[in-house]
Design a protein around this nucleic acid. Structure first.
Lengths: 238, 238
DNA sequence: CGCTGGATTGAATCCTTTCAAGTATAGTGG
DNA sequence: CCACTATACTTGAAAGGATTCAATCCAGCG
C-alpha cells in the first residue's frame, strides 16, 4: 500500500511506473486544507481545476427547489472530487464532512500529464467508470430497496471503500456522518434513518453511534441488504 | 451533424480530426444487428469488447433478489454500451428496447486507438463523465422527487438526449418503452406510472401513447419537474 | 449553566403499493 | 374474417411504508 491514496487505488487497476507515480505526486505537492462543512465547489461553478481527496471525507450533493437536497455520492481519500475543468459547468456541489486535505490539479496540468502518460489517463478514466458504477448502484438502492436494507447496503459500500484505502479495521471505521446526511443520501428522512438504525442494531448487524460504525456481522449484513460488491471493481483485473 | 452518432456527440466536446473520425468509423464498420428485447450483456459477463449504439434504444439494468429489477440508464445512439473489457466483470446487464445496430469494439482495438489518439481518449473519457452525471441526476430524481415530477423529469432528459442525436422533432419523439419499464427506471410501479401519465396528460404537459411522446409544453414541463439540464453538458465547451 | 445541533420516540397523515378486475391492442391461426 | 391468446394499459379499493409534526432527550460547548 502506497501512501498516496490515488496511487494505491489505481494499483487495483494497473501497476504504475515510477514516472506515472511522479506525476501524481507532483499534483499533490501542495494540498489545500479544508475544514469540516466547508464547500469546495458550488453547483454552477466553472472551475479550472480538478481535485483529489488526500485525506478526510466529502460528499457531492444537488439542491432542489424547496430547500431539499440529495447527496449523490461520498468521496473518500483517493477519490477525485471531480473533473470539472473538463466539464464546462459543475452540475453539483461538493462539501467536506470532516477536515480534509485536497489536491487541486489545474486543468492544464492534468491535460499535460495525461497526454504524456496515456496509461495514467486510462487509469483515471477507469476511476470515472467506477464512479459511474457506484452511482448506478445508488439508483438501484434508492429505487427499489426498502429503508432498512437500503441503509445496510450503504454501510456495506462505505466499509469496503474505507477498507480499500486503509481506513477500516475489522468491522469498524469512522464515518463522519449525521443521521440527517444519511437520510439525504438515501432519499429518507432522518427520523426514518433513526428507526432503521435501531432495527439494524436490534438485529445485531451494525451499530452506529457518534460517527463510529461497528459492523458486527458483515456477512449477515450483506445478506440482509442483498448486497453485491461487484460494481466496486475491488479485485485486481488480471 | 455527422452521420455517425458518436462523432456528433463528441463534437459537443471537441472537434475531431479526420484521423480521429477515421478510428471511430473503423470501429463501426461491421455493426451487429440486434432484435428488440435481446440481451447484449449479462451481469457477471467478462466481455472483451466495448459496445457503441449506432441505432435503436437500449437500457442498463440490475437484478435483485425476488425477481425485481432496476433500470439504471437508457442508451441512445452515440452512447457507449459500456467499457467492459476495461472492467473485469459486468456489474449490470444491457438489453435492447428496439431493434438496434451496435458496434462491438475489441478491447485491444480500443486501447490501440486511444493510445494513438490521446484527444480521442479524452473525448471518450468525457462521455463517461457525462454518463456518471446522468446517473447522479437519476439518484436525485428517484431519491427526492414525487412520482409525477419524477416522471416528467425523465421525459425532459429523454427529449434532450434524443434531440441531440437528431431523433426528436419539436416536442415529439419515439420512446420504445412500456409503462412497466418506465416504472422500473423510476422506482415506481407500472400502476402508478399509469396514474401519473394521466396527470401529465390532464395538465396538458405531455402525452405518451403507443411509444410516441408528445411534449405539449416543454417549458412548463421543465418547470413542473424542477428540471435543470446542466448535467447533460449539452452546450459546447468553448 | 443555558444553548445548540443531533438523536430519539409517538401519533396521525399521506403517497405509493398491492391486489384485483376489466379493457384495449396486436399478432396468430383456423 | 374472426375467434383466440398474449401483452399492455386502465381503474378502484384496501393496505402499508415512510413522512410529517411534535415533543423530549442528550452531549458538547461557550
Amino acid at each position: 500500500m502506497h501512501d498516496n491514496p490515488l496511487v494505491s487505488k489505481l494499483s487495483g487497476f494497473l501497476d504504475l511506473t515510477s514516472c506515472e507515480r511522479h506525476e501524481i505526486e507532483t499534483w499533490c505537492a501542495q494540498p489545500k486544507q479544508l475544514n469540516a462543512r466547508s464547500t469546495l465547489i458550488h453547483e454552477g461553478d466553472q472551475t479550472g481545476a480538478t481535485c483529489l481527496m488526500l485525506s478526510g471525507w466529502a460528499y457531492r450533493y444537488k439542491d432542489i427547489r424547496g430547500g431539499k437536497r440529495q447527496i449523490v455520492g461520498f468521496l473518500l481519500p483517493g477519490d477525485m472530487c471531480d473533473l470539472h475543468g473538463f466539464l464546462h459547468e459543475a452540475d453539483h456541489s461538493i462539501a467536506m464532512l470532516s477536515n480534509a486535505e485536497v489536491a487541486l490539479i489545474p486543468s492544464e496540468a492534468l491535460r499535460a500529464s495525461t497526454e504524456k502518460e496515456p496509461r495514467l489517463m486510462r487509469g483515471l478514466w477507469w476511476t470515472t467508470l467506477v464512479d459511474a458504477a457506484i452511482a448506478r448502484e445508488w439508483i438501484l438502492n434508492v429505487g427499489l430497496r426498502d429503508a432498512a436494507p437500503r441503509l445496510a447496503s450503504l454501510f456495506c459500500e462505505l466499509w469496503l471503500r474505507a477498507h480499500r484505502v486503509g481506513l477500516a479495521e475489522d468491522g469498524a471505521f469512522l464515518a463522519p456522518l449525521t443521521q440527517t446526511e444519511l437520510g439525504e443520501a438515501l432519499g429518507l428522512t432522518s427520523v426514518h434513518i433513526n428507526r432503521m438504525l435501531r432495527i439494524l442494531r436490534e438485529q445485531r448487524l451494525l451499530e452506529f453511534r457518534g460517527k463510529q460504525v461497528v459492523i458486527q456481522d458483515l456477512k449477515a449484513l450483506m445478506e440482509f441488504a442483498d448486497y453485491d460488491p461487484t460494481y466496486l471493481q475491488l479485485t485486481r483485473r488480471l
